[in-house]
Design a protein around this nucleic acid. Structure first.
Lengths: 207, 207
DNA sequence: TATTCTACAGACTAACCGGTCGGTTGGCAA
DNA sequence: TTGCCAACCGACCGGTTAGTCTGTAGAATA
């Protein structure tokens, strides 16, 4: 029969239902914060009901955790980690990924900022479960950046005296800071200007 | 009579009542965000009632605006702007004010981050009134930093080719980013490490 | 002293929101 | 065909919360 075709059907596909809930919840969290997310909004966005949501997730917090684990983490890996890991020239890879920042999802990024950092700033002081999950993502991101810097050092592209660990931390902090400044100003020009400062900093690391 | 002594009395001093509400609201916003602030918590913290609050402020949003204008702005001016304006050596002044960051209010700063940036990140996309007020503070802060950089350049302390405007923007962004990283990690060591990166960046500006 | 207004007190309300629970439906196994 | 269970529906509930309204005490004013 057409049982395999059912993947494309909307009805009675629990995995897809769960995924739709996750994606709608992610958008709501991205726009309003976790505390500002309303489950009713998630439901109207998906066309589902309370029963469906609470069948897949025990409560609001668990839904938030799942958004971090199953939406935000893979997104960060796809947008940041994979490009950096694969780059033959890691220093150039860093610059490229930073320079491309204003171009991807421009309106959303300027208006709502970085989903990872938004959630971290909101929830880290309030909920240890969120904090650990988000900190884990930052740690992974940090380690990949640090390794890129170390490879650049081995290639003789950056100075010997650079502490790759601390530098990677600072790069992430500055990057999130730039996005935050642009978000508060609601200005893409601000993001571009701020990013130039970060690129200049990367130049100052070179030999 | 003792009419002048009434300033020290708690009862029937509307200015002091208003100020107490503002300070309690600031703390609640600082810890839970504006959306997370509960008016009842503000009232129990002050020992007042709904009548007092709604006598001084028309609604929750107006209270939030007043916190920005009358608490956060003066605090930023006292902690950042005055020290920078007065510094005979503006470059050293910048470094000093950054290095002292981990030492002031250490537990609160690590746990809850920067009140100005917290509120900006939460409310800028959601409420234009908040955004404008918070952006104004960032602009003032930026201008003072830019002027400090320009004085440093006139003194020949930093390179001629530096764009003081963009550099000031980046310094603020990086600084807020550092505080955010420390907050997410809940780690003072992270703040110190991140700040070192910022100080190193300032060194890279010198001649 | 009488009057009036400011500065509160505190009970109340309407709406919202996370979560529950009994019921229904569709698909699959026996 | 029947029985069963995961998947989902949607009405309902209880607690919470911003905001309202009536009342009152104290200070200023006349």
């Amino acid at each position: 029969m057409d049982s395999l075709d059912n993947i494309s059907r909307i009805e009675r596909n629990p995995d897809m239902t769960r995924q739709r809930i996750l994606e709608a919840a992610f958008l709501e969290i991205y726009r309003n914060g976790f505390q500002g997310m309303r489950l009713d909004e998630v439901l109207t966005a998906t066309g589902l009901t309370k029963g469906a949501l609470y069948h897949h997730f025990p409560n609001k917090r668990a839904l938030g955790y799942a958004v971090v684990d199953e939406i935000i983490l893979p997104t960060v890996e796809g947008m940041w980690l994979q490009p950096l890991k694969n780059a033959a020239d890691p220093l150039q890879g860093l610059k490229t990924v930073i320079e491309q920042l204003p171009e991807m999802k421009p309106p959303e990024m300027i208006r709502y900022g970085c989903p990872l950092n938004n959630l971290a700033q909101e929830m880290s002081p309030l909920d240890e479960g969120f904090r650990q999950r988000l900190d884990y993502i930052f740690c992974v991101w940090h380690d990949v950046t640090e390794q890129a810097l170390e490879r650049a050092r081995q290639q003789g592209r950056i100075r010997e005296d650079i502490d790759c660990n601390e530098t990677a931390t600072f790069i992430l902090a500055a990057l999130e800071g730039c996005i935050g400044m642009a978000k508060n100003a609601q200005s893409e020009a601000r993001l571009v200007a701020c990013n130039r400062g970060l690129i200049d900093y990367l130049h100052s690391l070179e030999t």
